[in-house]
Amino acid sequence: MISLFKERRQKLTLFKSSRQKNIQHRISVPEGLYTRCPGCKQDFISEQVAANYYVCPGCGYHMRLTAQGRIKLIADKGSMRELNAGLITRENLDFPGYSEKLASLEAQTGLKEAVVTGVCSIDGISTVIGVMDSRFLMGSMGSVVGEKITRAVEYATKRRLPIVIFTASGGARMQEGIISLMQMAKTSNALARHSQAGLLYISVMTHPTTGGVTASFASLGDIILAEPGALIGFAGPRVIEQTIRQKLPEGFQRAEFLLEHGFLDMIVERQNLKSTLGSLLRLHSPSAILNRKKGGG
């Protein structure tokens, strides 16, 4: 496995160096026309990047998707119906500047909070989804995120639907203090009931998924998928480095590392994500389940 990654890395480096030459003359480009890949630091035509689901055409780096972009990628066209969009934060810590921050983020991103939840169809299968957006306070979980996830799970349990949650989060939201921490228990308890009802939960971890979100609903999927290269962990890399006073090994806490250590089922490239989810959902639909004799004995 490791040697395979090494080989791929070498190929990529080679590829990158050949690319670099073509790009060099475009030192100053109008903003917006080109998108710089955070992976290989090269510029690509934005349209081309968008058409490629925001996966770098050069190195395959999976750039962050907005919640709307993710929904467009996953939900059948026009099928998404948002749930609980109107929930609002009732400040409980009176953290200075927090409500202003929420207001400015809403203006900036068009999002009311760090997660969008709703019900949609994926390859024709009715599914509840939750999509986090890391532009909104690092996708952190405060009361609204916890409540929306919980309500989405409860909705799925009540209507006997599967749920898919796409995580992208720095963890529990500091500005709401202990209330944020308690959302970890709240969301996990709701998932316990969904699970006890025999229903499917697929967790899709995207870059980055850390802290209290990793330590609650993100890690509780019947099936856990991740996008390539996603940073996934409980403690952030900087906190760990400060604690152990040494540099972390390359690839630490990346999706590939988690797969190797047994905490992921699959790494799925973005272009295959919808079809993979569709197939998994179909394999869990009532029509796919072997009919067995009812009753004991």
């Binding site: 970890m184 228990a185 996990s188 308890n189 998932l191 316990a192 699970s195 990793t214 330590a215 609650s216 609903f217 993100a218 890690s219 509780l220 996934i232 962990g233 409980f234 905490f263």
Partner: peptide, 9 residues
């Protein structure tokens, strides 16, 4: 993360 999440659930 998984260990903590599992206990909560």
């Amino acid at each position: 993360g998984e260990a903590i999440a599992r206990n909560l659930l």
